[in-house]
Design a binder for these strands. Structure first.
Lengths: 166, 166
DNA sequence: TCTTGACCTCAAGTGCGCTTGAACTTACAG
DNA sequence: CTGTAAGTTCAAGCGCACTTGAGGTCAAGA
């Protein structure tokens, strides 16, 4: 009686194709009951769940990560507010990090790259003498380290041009 | 004379494997010169370019989109500050949208989902009587529409429970 | 009752962003 | 000069997130 949405209705309202919904089900992300004729029927709450999955997915989380997060809820029944709060808290640092990363990229576009240094290699964000390699592989500055971090690592590691450290 | 970085050095410094760098080259994202013995040699500027590609990729842009954006630069030589500014401006709305989306998700986690409504269907962010479907398919609220938008669409479209509109 | 559109399963296919392996060559330290 | 780490090409493979197609069943209106 409670579950009354067909897969087609859920597809239309969630924006996820029926095949996608079946796929989510095989991964354990959503659940359904079956009619006598083996057709899926969904509860309304699946809409919110799917919306949540889609958004988290767009954000860059894998379906497995999303599954794990949702699995921390007591799938027995009716998660408490505390359950959801815990889920919320666990995702927050990741979201904050992603937001910070995007803002950094945007700011780089505005300041450094906008000024032409990507080609001319002449501005403040630039990697002076490849110092940043002391921090390990990868594009350090764009991933959150600052030139100050590079200087610090250089001072510790004893790279070229030892900086003064009080 | 100018290009002196081997593919291994670029790999170590950029955090992208040699195979990945060759792949980027086949897509026209980066360029290299060759030694007499057919080995690749890179300019230092490729490091910044690769860092940029990686970050934009992490942000959710496809390599094709990144290629197109980079292709708007005059690959003849030395793009001007105006060229980079144009590139910067074209990406900005996309970045702003992504940032806004993430912030919305974070806020939803804090308020709506944190309060337990995902399962209990009882809070303000909830979709009253499936109103949001008037806005079209997909998870409308999480993608930027507000309950106010839903009410508006409902008033115009003549859905159930016509709201008063001055 | 019949018909039509929506649904079912299962296997295979797709597109993206790389990685791996085979078979071979180059660059450079000793 | 020689050994070896690092480089080369090309084809195939992989993981993710789905989609497509074949072959068949179900549900509901005329």
């Amino acid at each position: 009686m409670e579950p009354h949405l067909t897969i087609g209705e859920v597809a239309r309202r969630s924006g996820v194709a029926p095949s996608g919904l079946r796929y989510y089900e095989t991964l354990g992300l959503i659940a359904s009951e079956r009619t006598g004729g083996n057709q899926r029927r969904y509860r309304r709450s699946v809409l919110r769940r799917v919306a949540f999955i889609r958004t988290a997915s767009r954000v860059g989380l894998t379906l497995e990560q999303i599954r794990e997060a949702l699995a921390t809820l007591p799938d027995g029944r009716t998660p408490t507010a505390q359950d959801w709060s815990r889920l919320s808290r666990s995702w927050r640092p990741l979201l904050d990090a992603r937001i910070a990363e995007l803002q950094r990229l945007r700011d780089d576009l505005d300041s450094c790259i906008g000024c032409g240094c990507l080609s001319l290699e002449r501005c403040g964000l630039q990697n002076p003498g490849d110092r940043a390699s002391a921090l390990g592989p990868g594009p350090r500055y764009l991933e959150g380290d600052t030139p100050a971090d590079a200087a610090l690592a250089e001072a510790r590691g004893g790279g070229p041009g030892a900086a003064a450290r009080p």
